[in-house]
Design a protein around this nucleic acid. Structure first.
Lengths: 239, 239
DNA sequence: CAGTGGTCTAGACCACTGA
DNA sequence: CAGTGGTCTAGACCACTGA
């Protein structure tokens, strides 16, 4: 039985009142000076608790007016997008990667995104398949800017996916994920051992390092073999 | 040109050093007392900046050892899962909802999840289609626990989707989203005006209020007509 | 104009843990 | 044991805004 710091106790007290419905959207919460008396503590302590609730989107604070339960749940869901090898091993399956194609080429003159991406340099294209327990799990195609990551030219991707290499070498990034669905093309259907046109979940991830556009990966998952889970709830990220 | 509070300036200073790669994963950051001298401020001020960076996952703090740039980017992506009518209108399209079926029934004796869900009460089942500019956009099936939300029995869902009604009446929730893909069944294919088996993006969302399991909705989106976007980056949630 | 939240100070004691 | 972060205090001044 570990004792919570006081500001955590105040925060969880208010949080549970909100989540239980005891106080509802728009309701006013006691002021900082009010809570100081209730908990017999300094103002900085209640301020810390309320600031965290505000950062988490559970309350709105307005100078002079007071602190109010936020009108709607935070619409932001937290989505876990893990490294595929890690995810597969975590499921207790054997992970394997097989490269299909690798080539260096210039950016397509017709593709504006590739132009910006390459920054007048060349691009590395790698396609391959992620395999879990000898069953094809996901097909992926990746483009890497050789301008942004020149060292990658010498890396070996016959059995290690470029994503893992990049995670080790380009650690800090900004990323955008786009999640959709598509019917498998003849080519990817053959690789994934499914009928042409069968439904696949797709993830397109673009990654930057600072201002530099590093890589774009397109992954196709056989429908039902992989789901993404996002959760929003009372459990916020710790301090 | 608005002046940032000092703790925000300290936070963004360190944040940009991390995101630019000037300091890398595992590197040690100046201690609180060191930063006090650099910025000529009190310890609480640098503590606030560093605590926020820690909460955002950009640094790890260890008592006695110091503060370090976190080993890997936070794998949590922020996913925006908005209300469908709002989303469609925001795209500049006309929104319409058409109910297909509505019925009240007992929980299936063979479905353990439904049993827990209903808590020995009855369930409301509503299916319908979301329409954007006269084109079917998403098919949805929803179950609502009448035990958790008795008021919903009297609501009219012929042209308003139950999700919007619930947002207005059951405002604070915990939710889990599961995102996948599926080939359209004969029934949903007809409703969505697509061939049977065509790829669809699916979202399954389960919502609680406190401990009470309120609703489960299954939505199918025609592939390509709707993508989910998740982003991780330098821009953290404000205070 | 009174009360609120936003910010900041200059201290304090503590637990922890690497050297 | 020295230095670190975690927490907390008891003040302070400020901008803002609803009554």
């Amino acid at each position: 039985m570990k004792l919570l710091p006081l500001h955590e106790r105040i925060r969880t007290d208010i949080e549970s009142q909100i989540l239980s419905g005891a106080i509802g959207p728009g309701d006013k919460i006691a002021s900082e000076s009010g809570l100081m008396e209730v908990y017999g503590c300094a103002r900085m302590t209640v301020n810390k608790a309320l600031s965290r609730l505000s950062a988490a989107g559970l309350v709105d604070r307005r100078t002079k007016a007071g602190t109010f339960v936020a009108k709607r749940p935070n619409e932001m869901m937290v989505l876990d997008v893990p490294d595929l090898p890690v995810e597969i091993v975590r499921r207790g399956q054997a992970y394997r990667y097989r490269m299909i194609q690798r080539l260096e080429r210039a950016a397509s003159p017709h593709d504006e995104e590739e132009q910006r991406f390459a920054e007048r340099g060349r691009l590395l294209f790698v396609s391959g398949v992620h395999i879990a327990d000898d069953q094809p799990f996901a097909y992926e195609e990746r483009l890497v800017s050789l301008n942004a990551v020149p060292e990658i030219a010498g890396a070996d991707f016959t059995s290690e996916p470029p994503g893992s290499w990049l995670l080790r070498h380009i650690p800090w990034t900004e990323a955008e994920n786009r999640i959709g669905a598509v019917g498998a093309s003849a080519q990817s259907a053959e690789i994934l051992h499914i009928p042409t046109g069968a439904a696949c979940l797709t993830i397109d991830r673009r990654t930057w390092r600072g201002e530099k556009y590093v890589t774009h990966v397109h992954q196709q998952f056989v429908a039902g073999r992989y789901d993404l889970v996002a959760r929003f709830g009372a459990v916020q990220r710790g301090s």
